[in-house]
Each structure stands twice: as structure tokens, then as C-alpha cells.
């Protein structure tokens, strides 16, 4: 471990890998469990895009807040939401992050600065402007990150928020996770100006495109943006070009994709493989180090699934609780 040319400590390198591996295994396992019919409702998997969430979240602490999307599991895990509670939530159990009342699309943990996955596309952008505004009033140097896809980038909320953040110089980073598909509709078809960086230019904020499958590219670009925002340098936009390994939701036959697209991406653009190869080639860690993490994560996910399946369902009275703080 003596030779580490990366701008992260050896511990952080391993932490980043563990996060990405946890997201991958969590999603791959949900894919399998969903097919069995045990999981209610809609599930949108993040597999493939792990480097994006992780490369960004490595720069954040609990004081920093994120607003996530319908495809939010990866953001949750990278922001430190408990994996057991997440799994239980997705199974609709009382032990879930939201006591079974939110489900996959609404996992939140405000104590971790995770302001919620969101079933409404583009809805997180205004909320994160508010989070950033709160940080400014409190003077806590917190930064807000809002994630949205190439599809939600066309929501008025996102554009309004970009203007608000730029006008008020808020510490907000707008992260476009561009996986090429708005559900099933291609970026080329649905977006008049396909470059999301151009949107940033329109609001006078810097925009940067990176290979979202390359952890180190995301990490470095996000690091500069976040540090700049934290110091009062204002908002910025980061476009991460990523590949979604699964469909829009589980059960999506993905016939709108090119033949062999998923196989190609898994073979050539897998962010976990790219990360592992690069770190091993540099001699900063060994294959064995990674294999150990793989084993640990596999057992964590196993345990999470087992405990989620065994956990109690919410009691009937929970139907009526927590609508208001007091009413």
C-alpha cells in the first residue's frame, strides 16, 4: 500500500470502492428479488452509475445535503443511509428508513443530509436551493447537491432553480446524471439542446462534462466545484455521462436500447472494474484487498435481505400517524 498516486488516502480509496460495491450488490440483488415478486411497487435501479454518486459524496459530510431522484438507492447508500433500513423500506417493513411508509422512491434520512429520493422528476432542485439557503443563513458552510437525470433536466423546476441559485450565488451543485434515456425516450429526441453544460452557460454558471463511469474524473471535478461553492464561489453544473445497466424500472424489457448495449457497457464501462484495475495497476491495493471487500459487502446485502424479509410489517395504526407534527 506504499504506492498511492491518487488524491485519496488508501482508506478513502477502499471506502469509495466499498460504497460502489455496496450500491452495485444492493441493486443487483433487488433485480433478482424483484423478479421473485416479493417487492411491492416500482423500483428504479442505479446499477452502472455508482461512480457518480460515490465520486461526489466522498467530498460531503452530514452538514451537506443532497436531493435525490426516483433512482435514489445509490445516492442514499453513498450519503450514508443505513443499508438494512433501506432494504427493509423497499420491502415495506416497519423497520425501514421511513417505517414502510415511503418505499423505494422516498427513502430519506435528514440526519445524514439525505433529503429524500423523489418520485417527482426535477422536484429536488428547488428543495436543495432551500437547503443551501439554510446553510448560508446558519453559516455552516454546507453545500447542497441536487441530482437529476437527462430527462428531468427539461423540467421547469430545474431551470428555475438554476436561475435562483445563480442569482443568489447559492452553494448548489446541479448534477445531471445523463444515462441517455428519459425513461425510454432518447436524449437526442427529447432535448432541443443536448448539451446540459449549455444550460449552465445560459445561467452564467460553469458547467463541466465528465465521464461518469470514471470515479476519479467525477471525484476531481466534483471536488473542485464543491470546494468552490463552499467558499462562496457559487453554483455549478456537473454533467456525468453514465450508463444505466438495467431498465427504467424493474420489469422494463428495454427494447428501446440498441442490441448488445447493456453487455457492451458492462464489459467496457463498468465503473467498478475501471476503478479496481486502475488502483491495482498503480499498486495502491491488491486484487485480494478488493476481494475481501466484495465478500464483506455480499454478506451485508445478504443479511439486509434476510432481515428485511423477516421484519414485521407496519401496524395498522401506522396508516394514520405522522401526517402532521400536531393536528
Amino acid at each position: 500500500m506504499s504506492n498511492n498516486p491518487f488524491p485519496l488516502s488508501s482508506e478513502d480509496l477502499m471506502r469509495a470502492y466499498r460504497t460502489m460495491r455496496t450500491i452495485r450488490d444492493f441493486e443487483e440483488r433487488l433485480h433478482v428479488e424483484f423478479a421473485k415478486g416479493d417487492i411491492p411497487g416500482f423500483v428504479h435501479l442505479y446499477a452502472g452509475e455508482e461512480a457518480c454518486a460515490t465520486g461526489i459524496m466522498m467530498h460531503l459530510t452530514d452538514i451537506d445535503r443532497i436531493a435525490s431522484t426516483h433512482r435514489g438507492h445509490g445516492h442514499c447508500i453513498a450519503k450514508g443511509v443505513d443499508v438494512h433500513e433501506m432494504m427493509a423500506e423497499i420491502y415495506g417493513k416497519a423497520t425501514g428508513s421511513c417505517r414502510g411508509k415511503g418505499g423505494s422512491m422516498h427513502i430519506a434520512d435528514l440526519s445524514k443530509g439525505m433529503m429524500g429520493a423523489n418520485g417527482i422528476l426535477g422536484a429536488g432542485a428547488p428543495l436543495i436551493c432551500g437547503a443551501a439557503l439554510a446553510s448560508r443563513f446558519r453559516g455552516d458552510r454546507g453545500v447542497g447537491i441536487t441530482f437529476f437525470g437527462d430527462g428531468a433536466a427539461n423540467q421547469g423546476t430545474v431551470l428555475e432553480s438554476m436561475n435562483l441559485a445563480a442569482a443568489w450565488n447559492l452553494p448548489v451543485i446541479f448534477v445531471v446524471e445523463n444515462n441517455g434515456y428519459a425513461e425510454s425516450t432518447s436524449v437526442e429526441y427529447a432535448t432541443a439542446v443536448d448539451s446540459y453544460v449549455d444550460r449552465a452557460s445560459g445561467f452564467g454558471m460553469p458547467g463541466v462534462t465528465v465521464d461518469g463511469m470514471d470515479f476519479f474524473a467525477v471525484h476531481e471535478a466534483a471536488g473542485e466545484m464543491i470546494a468552490r461553492a463552499r467558499d462562496g464561489g457559487g453554483p455549478a453544473l456537473l454533467e456525468c455521462n453514465v450508463a444505466r445497466f438495467f431498465g427504467h424500472f424493474e420489469g422494463d424489457a428495454q427494447t428501446y436500447k440498441a442490441k448488445g448495449e447493456n453487455d457492451y457497457n458492462r464489459e467496457n464501462r463498468d465503473c467498478l472494474k475501471i476503478f479496481r484495475d486502475r488502483v491495482c495497476d498503480a499498486g495502491a491495493a491488491t486484487r485480494h484487498d478488493f476481494a475481501l471487500i466484495d465478500l464483506e459487502v455480499a454478506s451485508l446485502i445478504d443479511a439486509a435481505v434476510i432481515s428485511a424479509k423477516n421484519a414485521a410489517l407496519p401496524q395498522a395504526r401506522e396508516l394514520l400517524t405522522d401526517v402532521y407534527v400536531a393536528y
Binding site: 439542446v193 443536448d194 448539451s195 453544460v197 449552465a200 452557460s201 463541466v208 462534462t209 465528465v210 455549478a236
Partner: peptide, 21 residues
Amino acid sequence: NPISGRDIRRVIAKANSLQIA
């Protein structure tokens, strides 16, 4: 090349961003 000029120099420097149009 539709994607040239979108790198990190927009943040670490003052590089411009030529829009697609």
C-alpha cells in the same frame, strides 16, 4: 466534436463554454 470545451477548466479557470447552437 460536439463535446469539446466542457472540461474542468470552467471551474478551475475561466474557460468559456461554446454552446451547441
